[in-house]
């Protein structure tokens, strides 16, 4: 990186510091290299993070004009979270002293995801661990002088709006006495609220009492997801097309709204057909109507 800012003391050039690792993932699972987006994160998915850092220690001593036997550096791992230009909250999660006998370190942290939000700003930095007695005139002279750093910004949540909200609950506990208490899933939505944000008004409840369904949804089993998606589509399309003013009703609805989504699904399942002809199909050939929706709901295994 070409620096644009001058510090009042000598710092470390990039060539003397090597970082590796930058691995992140769910705790207890294989970590993967840090990327721009961490897929599949939510508040329940605690994270593990590590970065390896290695300093050419003699080179650092020369660059900072501090005798290598007196030089104490500290490698610091900081993680910030919360949206904004700067993260809302930054904490030091690991720090390791580096000296002539130990010029490399693996910085590690476990992150409690319930306290994370939106993004992670991961910074690996080197600061002066201890002022040296025999330092040069422009050597760093304060403890924690910033000497070098590298950052990665990771999006951990796409805002929820483009996602299909899912929750796993026990139907016996959450909906006691409801006639659907033994159903594998239940889609909660309010008819007629076509203007509502899809992510805010449609919610899929997966029955944790129902053996196997939760697992299949978590694993992304294509057939299960297809059946669920088709269920949502069928419910919404059926209701929409039976309204006399369906076409007008679904006009002028912004992206992300339920109505916009339903309109798209209608185009996907019944390309080129009017609402009334779809309604007619639903009435006279309900089997074909359903199958067309099931077919449109095919869940691709590809990301």
């Amino acid at each position: 990186m070409r620096r644009t800012t001058a510090f009042p003391f000598l710092v470390l050039p990039d060539s003397l510091v090597r970082t590796g690792g930058w691995m992140i993932g769910e705790r207890g699972s294989p970590l993967a290299p840090v990327a721009d987006i961490l897929e599949g994160w939510d508040y329940q998915c605690d994270l593990e993070l590590n970065v390896e850092i290695e300093v050419d220690f003699q080179g650092a001593a020369d660059a900072l004009e501090i005798p290598s036997e007196e030089l104490r550096l500290e490698a610091v791992l900081k993680v910030g979270t919360g949206s904004g230009t700067m993260p809302r909250r930054i904490e030091i999660l690991d720090r390791v002293v580096l000296n002539s006998g130990r010029a490399e370190a693996k910085l590690e942290a476990t992150l409690d995801s319930s306290n994370l939000s939106g993004r992670l700003l991961i910074e690996c930095g080197i600061v002066l661990g201890k002022p040296a007695g025999n330092a040069g005139g422009i050597s760093p002279r304060w403890q924690a002088s910033r000497l070098w750093s590298e950052r990665r910004d990771v999006l951990i949540e796409d805002g929820g709006a483009s996602r299909f909200p899912i929750e796993s609950v026990s139907f016996k506990r959450s909906f006691p006495g409801a006639p659907f208490v033994a159903a594998p899933w239940y889609i909660d939505w309010q008819p007629g609220m076509w203007r509502l944000d899809f992510g805010g008004s449609v919610r899929l409840y997966v029955n944790s009492d129902f053996p196997g369904v939760g697992e299949r949804v978590v694993e992304g089993d294509p057939l299960t997801l297809q059946a669920i998606l088709a269920d949502v589509m069928r419910q919404m399309i059926s209701l929409a097309v039976t309204s006399a003013d369906c076409d007008e009703m679904l006009e002028d609805l912004g992206e992300g709204s339920v109505g916009h989504q339903v309109r798209n699904w209608m185009d996907l399942a019944f390309p080129g057909q009017s609402a009334s002809s779809i309604a007619s199909l639903a009435e006279h050939r309900p089997g074909r109507f359903s199958a067309a929706i099931l077919s449109a709901a095919e869940v691709s295994m590809d990301p």
Partner: peptide, 13 residues
Amino acid sequence: GPPLARAAAKLGR
């Protein structure tokens, strides 16, 4: 509960 973010992301996609 099982983390459902990935499934949510998948359906979201």
